[in-house]
Design a binder for these strands. Structure first.
Length: 340
DNA sequence: AAGAAACACAACCGCGAATGA
DNA sequence: CTCATTCGCGGTTGTGTTTCT
């Protein structure tokens, strides 16, 4: 065990590669393949360690590397995969042909992470931030409220938002049902934490909810940022409706890049369905930038496997689960009773 | 025009997993 | 089974470039 001693060896060159070194490395690998990286430098006539050669080849010299800016589609793929896989850069890279894990990692650290923070999302959990800074985008959105109000009458706006809030609450409930580790829903379900045991209940509930939510995409306001903004404005109008649990959504998000950097836009919600995507991935990722909700509501059996897959996905994730949902809050919420 | 700050990205470091003797 | 070696991964740093003041 222990780490490789190769880089500790003195006398080996470090730092940026020269074109001559690149040429030597490329020529050698094209002719012989890399074989043992440790042996390669000597054989190729390079005064570098094998590790350095491997890195240079895999991150820069490999002929199949795609260079240049990341496309919108690639960006969205990274965001989606990161929400499921966490910082598993190599795993993410396998879904982006021609891109290296290092490149993706750099792109994440320099662009996407900041973008998410700007949007008010925790880049690690992909959930709305709950610290003080999270309110910043919210406040920015509020600042734009006046403009929005110029276009819609307040009442009409409030009514529409009330409907959307109800849909969000349903989504929350669905999220709870899809949580394999969720505590038994007190008096509403069996007392067992066993997924199979609560499965029957969850399946039916999830099935019904998915049915009722299948039209959510047609909602006139489809982005969370709009909903957040709406929620704030509505809260002023009708204090009896609580939106406190809205930021708890954990269903994987499908992010859309704001059309320009000055515009703050939160992710659109997408209910993922199991699909014929790569067998490595339990998720069927939306293939285009305009995702649509599942056109066919999964049958009960499928919903079960969705739940299982959700479990797999969350275990694959590198971050521990924050208490995902204030379940009792939801139960006590008058809004919940209206929709349930 | 010059210095500072921010950004972008290549490369390095250290760790753990895999592998083979 | 143990240990040494190699490889690959993820975090971090260093440095060149661009933008801002």
């Amino acid at each position: 065990m222990g780490r490789s001693p190769c880089c500790d060896e003195s006398g080996l060159k470090k730092g940026p590669w020269t074109p001559e070194e690149d040429q030597k490395l490329v020529k050698y690998i094209q002719k012989h393949g890399h074989g043992s990286w440790r042996a390669l430098p000597k054989l190729a006539g390079l005064n570098r360690c094998g590790k350095s050669c491997r890195l240079r080849w895999t991150n820069y010299l490999r002929p199949d590397i795609k260079r240049g800016k990341f496309s919108q589609e690639e960006e969205q793929t990274i965001l989606n995969l990161h929400s499921v896989l966490g910082n598993k850069w190599s795993a993410i890279a396998t879904h982006l042909p021609g891109r290296t894990d290092n490149e993706i990692k750099n792109f994440w650290n320099t662009h996407l992470k900041k973008k998410l923070i700007q949007m008010g999302f925790d880049p690690m959990t992909h959930r709305p931030r709950t610290d003080i800074f999270s309110s910043l985008p919210h406040l920015i959105a509020l600042a734009n409220l006046k403009e929005l109000m110029d276009h819609h009458s307040l009442e009409e706006h409030a009514l529409r938002l009330q409907t959307e809030a109800a849909q969000m609450a349903k989504l929350q409930y669905l999220q709870y049902l899809l949580q394999p580790q969720a505590p038994a829903a007190s008096n509403m379900a069996t007392s067992s934490n066993n997924l199979n045991t609560i499965g029957t209940f969850s399946d039916m509930e999830a099935f019904n909810l998915l049915n009722s939510l299948s039209s959510i995409k047609d909602s006139p306001v489809s982005s969370l940022s709009q909903l957040d903004l709406s929620a704030s404005s509505l809260q002023g109008i009708n204090d009896s409706i609580s939106f406190s649990h809205l930021p708890d959504l954990q269903i994987p998000c499908n992010y859309q890049t704001p059309p320009n950097k000055d515009m703050v836009q939160a992710p659109e919600l997408t209910v993922f369905s199991q699909g014929e995507d790569s067998p490595n991935s339990p998720w069927q990722l939306p293939s285009s930038s305009t995702p649509s909700p599942p056109s066919v509501v999964p049958p009960v059996a499928q919903t079960s496997s969705m739940i299982n897959n959700l479990g797999d996905a969350s275990s694959a994730s590198s971050y521990g689960g924050e208490a995902p949902l204030a379940w009792h809050d939801l139960l006590e919420d008058p809004l919940f009773h209206d929709i349930a």
